[in-house]
Design a protein around this nucleic acid. Sequence first.
RNA 1: GGAGGAGUGGCCGAGUGGCUUAAGGCGGCGGUCUUGAAAACCGUUGAACGCAAGUUCCGUGGGUUCAAAUCCUACCUCCUCCGCCA
Length: 423
Amino acid sequence: MLDIKYLRDNFAAAEKALATRSGKVDLSGFQMLDQQRRELLNEVEALKAEKNKVSALIGQTKDKSQVQGEISRMKEVSAQIKILDDRLREVADNLSELLMGVPNIPHPQSPVGASEDDNVEVRTWGDKPALNFTPKAHWDVGEGLGILDFERASKLSGARFCVYFGAGARLERALINFMLDLHTTEHGYTETLPPFLVNRASMTGTGQLPKFESDLFHTEDVDLFLIPTAEVPVTNLHRDEILAETDLPICYAAYTPCFRKEAGSHGKDTRGLIRQHQFNKVEMVKFVRPEDSDAELESLLGNAEKVLQLLQLPYRVVDLCTGDIGFSASRTFDIEVWLPGQECYREISSCSTFSDFQARRASIRFRREGAKKPELVHTINGSGLAIGRTLLAVLENYQQEDGSVLIPEVLQPYMGGMTKIVK
RNA sequence: GGAGGAGUGGCCGAGUGGCUUAAGGCGGCGGUCUUGAAAACCGUUGAACGCAAGUUCCGUGGGUUCAAAUCCUACCUCCUCCGCCA
C-alpha cells in the first residue's frame, strides 16, 4: 500500500510514476474519497467530544431529573454519531479498497519500459556448455532416464504436475538441502519452516489479495489459501510487530512447496517443469532499515547467484523494467539460467525490494535507538532458488550424448556420492 | 466433534455501568546516593489519525445505554477434560 499522505501531497507525480507500469492504475476517486473521509472524521469526532463531555457531567450529577434535557439531547447526538460513523466506514472502506489495488511506485533506478523486451541485462556469468551433440529438452532427458513422469502425474492430478522417481526425487531433495545449507551457514540466514496454508490477512499483507485471488488455490470448507511462495508466510511472521533496530536486518531462508493456478497462462510452457501448479522453492526474506534496502537487495541477489555459481550453471542477471515488475515490488532483478535444450535463458530467481509497500500493508515496523516513533521497515525477498527449475537446468546443462546426466560436484555429497544419473 | 474456562499496555495482573486520565508489579530508560557497581529511593515509559482542539484502540464484529474494559450477542484464538486420530 502507498502512503496516503504521500499520495495526497504528490498526486501528479505518483500518477506519472505509476503510468510507467503495465496495466492501467485507476486513481480517479482518490482525492474525492480522501477529502470526504477527512470531513466526516472531523464532524463525527467533534460530536463524540461533545458527547463525552456531557456524559461525564451527567455522571457527576446525583439528581438525574436535573439533566433530563441533556440526556435526551445526547440521545439524538448518539443517533447522529451512528449515522455519520456508518457513512465514514463506507467511505473509508471504499478508499482502502482503492488503495489496496494500487501497485507500488517503481524504484527511481528501475529502467523505464513497457514490457519484458525493455528489461536490461546487467551481467552474464559462466560459459554455455559446448556440447558436440544436439541437446535435448529436460522432459526428454528426464523421461528417458525414468526420473520424471508427467503422464502419471496428470492421471493423479491433471496438467502441470510431475512425479519424480529415484535419482530424480533425490536430486530435488539434494538441491533443497544444498541451498538451505548454503544460505544458513555461509550467508547468515535463519532457517524457517512455515505453514503452507495461510489466512486472508497474510495474503493481503504481502499483496496477493485482494487483487490476485484468482491466481491462488483456496480451500473450500475453511477460508485458507495455499501459499504461492514462502514470501507470504515468512514476511507475515512479523506482521503487526515493532522490531528493535538492533534486530535488523532479519534474514530468513525457507523451503516450501508453492502452489499457483497459473490462470491466464494457458498454452504457455505446457511441457516440462517450467510452469507447474506445485513446485518447490527455497526463498530468502529480509527485513531491513530503509537506508540499507538497496545494498541488502544487492547482497540477496549475490546470495542467489552464488547457488548457480557453485552448481556451475551459466546465467544472466536482468534488471526488470517498470512495465515488467510485479504489483508489490519497486525494483526487481531476475536471474535467468541458460537452458541449452531450449536455447534460451529462463527465469530461475526473482529478487525484489518492496520498499515499505508490504510493511505498510502488514504493519511491520521498527524503532530506532532512542527514537519514540516507530518506522516502517523495508522488505526484500528472492528465490534462492526455484528447485524444479534448477533441477531442469541441471538436466539440460549436464546431459551427456548417451542420455545420462552428470551430477554437479557440490551436489554429490547430497546424492550419497553418486556422480552420474544413468538409466 | 462434546463439555467447561480464559483473552486487559513489552510482560504479569487489578478492574461487573459514570473521579479509569486502565490501579499495582516486573522489565526498559533517566536521575539521586556511590571510587565504581548492586541495593534503595525519585521520576519516566503503548499505538493510530489530526496543524491543533480532539478522537479511537482492553481478542474481533454487531447490539443495549445519556454513558461500556465492565451488560447482551456472534465469531476468532488459547487452556483443561472427554471422544477420535498420525
